[in-house]
Amino acid sequence: MLTKNNTKFIKSLQLKKFRQKEGLFIVEGAKNTLELLNSSYKLKYLIVSEDFLSRHQKEINSSDIEPIIVKEKELSALGAFQSNTDTLAVVHEKAPLKYNPSGFDLVLDDIRDPGNLGTIIRLADWYGIQNIICSETTAEFYNPKVISASMGSIFRTNLYRRDVKAFLSENNSRKVYGALLEGKNVHQVKFEANGILVIGNESHGIHPDIIPLITDKVTIPKIGQAESLNAAMATAIICDNVFRNY
């Protein structure tokens, strides 16, 4: 049974300060929850509709938590997305990971938009990029919009919060590719398998302090009249070129 105190507590986790205080975050929707149940994350609560329970009894039974069954109307009022009538989970954050190099890495310098961050996480998962190193000013990993946009990929990707300048300095033996307007045409670049791709802020690009650490500047050639590409779109185009010859 979902008590009033539980409801109040879960709703409080929509705010960053309470997520950080409790070390908990919310996962909403069928797709993200099923990916969560198949991961190593630990759940505090799993709240489901009767319909979701009947469709996914096997997956729920394989977890070590007893689901709380509620009406669909209660579910839609509980989380950040009113369209969610399937399930909501309250999940323990993982302790910060120790960085372990694993092929091509992605570095995000001040990506503020949660939707962009979630989409980039999904892109990284698609291309098999395991490590995403994020600046201190990049959006919070467990923001509900990040979780939603990642479509479950956040549970398969290693996310690190680091000082980007320090990280690149520590990895100065590797090629560092930076998405910049004055770079080489991305279609003409041969990327190294253990390289690092830096994507900058949506409005201002890569921070000036980081640019001296970029060994190879790359750009996406503009053919039409669009003013710009958002960070997630640019990441997708460059990643496709990175892995095209693999």
Rank of each mutant, 00 (worst) to 15 (best):
I199Y: 00
D86P: 05
S40N: 14
K42V: 11
L97K: 14
P67K: 07
E202S: 12
S76K: 11
A179F: 04
Y160F: 15
K73V: 09
E93K: 09
V218H: 04
A193L: 12
A232T: 03
G79L: 00
E50T: 12
Q130C: 09
Y45H: 14
T157V: 08
L229N: 04
A77S: 15
R156D: 03
I237G: 07
K8Q: 13
L229S: 07
F18C: 04
G23C: 06
I214N: 08
E227V: 11
V186Q: 08
M233V: 15
A236M: 06
T119D: 05
E93L: 09
A236Y: 02
F155S: 02
I69G: 05
S150Q: 03
Y142F: 12
E59S: 14
V218E: 03
G195L: 07
N6I: 07
Q130K: 15
M151R: 12
P144T: 04
A80I: 02
I60F: 04
Q20W: 03
L78Y: 01
I211M: 10
T215R: 08
I154D: 02
I220W: 00
H204I: 05
G23E: 09
E202G: 09
L181W: 09
P114S: 06
A231P: 01
W126G: 12
L36N: 01
N185G: 11
R112I: 12
I133N: 01
Y41A: 06
V189I: 15
V189Q: 12
F104H: 06
Q82F: 06
E66N: 13
G115P: 04
F191C: 09
I60Y: 03
Q188W: 02
I238T: 07
L117R: 00
T235A: 14
A124L: 05
Q20N: 13
K190I: 12
S40Q: 12
N32G: 06
N100A: 15
L43P: 05
S40M: 11
F243R: 07
I111F: 05
L197Y: 02
I220Y: 03
E72G: 07
Y160R: 04
S228I: 04
M151K: 12
G115Q: 05
R174C: 10
L13P: 01
A89K: 00
N116G: 10
E74P: 07
T87W: 00
A30F: 04
R156A: 08
L46F: 05
N100Q: 15
G128S: 11
V27H: 03
N116Y: 06
I111L: 03
Y246M: 12
T235E: 01
N245D: 14
Q82D: 11
E72M: 06
A89N: 02
L168W: 05
H92M: 05
Y99S: 08
N172H: 14
L24S: 08
E59M: 10
I111V: 15
Y45L: 11
I211V: 15
N230H: 08
S49H: 05
Q82Y: 07
E35T: 11
C134K: 00
N201E: 07
T157P: 02
K11M: 09
N201I: 05
S148C: 09
F25T: 02
F243N: 10
E140K: 04
L213H: 12
E72A: 15
